[in-house]
């Protein structure tokens, strides 16, 4: 596949602070590419650089072969962007929101009308098109925002934490939307706080911390990078749990953690051999067994191992936002 985005030795400094420090990676057309990292790692800066609203201190970004600082208008035309806040004009109707967006992307009048009616249909908002967006529910606004971001049919869609703050139902719906867009050939770049989301959606993930890429790969590649072992999980009865844990400790030298009726243990080497041995032994001893399984470490484990932190919340400059917005004309 050809690369739709090539990032070469990208550096961004704000005064003395280096937000992005010599990042290089390529994104193939048609991928869903995840950018993971703790808060303040440089994800948002990297995305702002790709969007062309920040100028890099050094390095360059090629979008479809074009330098995004030299061919600003053309590159911007190819990229759609959606952030975790829902950016729609609540005073404008759904139709007007889409119309302004279409005109900002210089769509021809005929094209505009077609794009708007398709967008309204996709967002299931056709019957509400003349209602102000401020009267919509959160989910409706979110759908309006998504189709608004896609009104100019971009080749690349950048999603900055698209599901933060959504309930489970809406999150799953958003995932479906993202997969659907991807199946139509749109390359997706995604930053997320949710590791299972990255695992669920992304073909490839880069983990960023302190402005540097510390690992890149498919979700399972990343997991194997962290350890060659696997995690053994046994579900039993409450009484059995203590006995099994003791057995694992004495016979297999596995450090087991017990949570009520669930036992977890980390198998560092030869997990498959250990697994079958454990299974045989448990059957032989006739210990109560409801289920037994093994799996790769979770993305959480990967994340903690790579960045030395769970998704931490950094304390930075206090930027209060909506509480300040008292006067909207």
């Amino acid at each position: 596949m050809r690369n739709i985005i090539e990032i070469n030795h990208l550096v961004k400094r704000f005064g003395n602070f280096t937000a992005v420090s010599d990042i290089s990676f390529n994104i193939e057309a048609g991928q869903i590419y995840g950018i993971l990292g703790p808060n303040g790692a440089g994800k948002t800066t990297t995305i702002s650089l790709v969007l062309g609203i920040e100028r890099p201190t050094a390095g360059k970004i090629l979008v479809d072969g074009m330098d995004n600082m030299h061919n600003k208008a053309k590159v911007k035309q190819m990229i759609g962007f959606m952030t975790q806040e829902t950016i729609v004009d609540s005073d404008l109707t759904a139709y007007e929101n889409l119309e302004i967006a279409a005109r900002l992307y210089h769509l021809e009048p005929q094209e505009t009308r077609r794009a708007i009616s398709t967008a309204l249909e996709e967002a299931e908002l056709t019957e509400f098109k003349d209602k102000p967006a401020g009267t919509f529910s959160g989910g409706m606004k979110r759908r309006l925002y998504l189709v608004k971001s896609m009104i100019h049919a971009p080749k690349v869609l950048i999603l900055d934490e698209p599901t933060t703050g959504l309930d489970v139902h809406n999150r799953v719906q958003m995932w479906e939307h993202i997969r659907e867009l991807n199946s139509r050939g749109v390359t997706i770049i995604l930053t997320t706080q949710y590791l299972e989301e990255a695992e669920e959606l992304c073909n490839k993930i880069s983990v960023i911390d302190h402005g540097k890429i510390i690992a890149t790969g498919t979700p399972s590649e990343l997991k194997r990078l962290v350890s060659k072992g696997q995690i053994l999980e046994i579900i039993t009865t409450r009484d059995g749990a203590a006995k099994i844990a003791k057995l694992l400790q004495s016979a297999f030298r596995l450090q087991a953690t017990v949570k009520e009726d669930k036992i977890e243990a980390y198998m560092e080497s030869n997990p498959l051999t250990i697994f079958s041995d454990v299974l045989n032994r448990l059957m032989k001893e006739k210990l109560p067994l409801i289920s037994i399984s093994m799996h790769l470490p979770t993305m959480d484990d990967v994340f903690i191992k790579l960045t030395g932190s769970s998704l931490r919340d950094s304390v930075g400059e206090n930027k209060s936002d909506r509480s300040n917005v008292m006067f909207r004309r």
């Binding site: 208008a73 053309k74 990229i79 967006a101 900002l104 917005v325 004309r329």
Partner: peptide, 24 residues
């Protein structure tokens, strides 16, 4: 209190960003 304020709220609500990423 109209024009200046609207620019600040546009920035806070993210509208300004959505203008800046468009090819205008």
């Amino acid at each position: 209190f109209g024009t200046g304020m609207s620019l600040i709220t546009d920035r806070q609500l993210g509208n300004l960003k959505s203008f800046l990423i468009s090819p205008i």
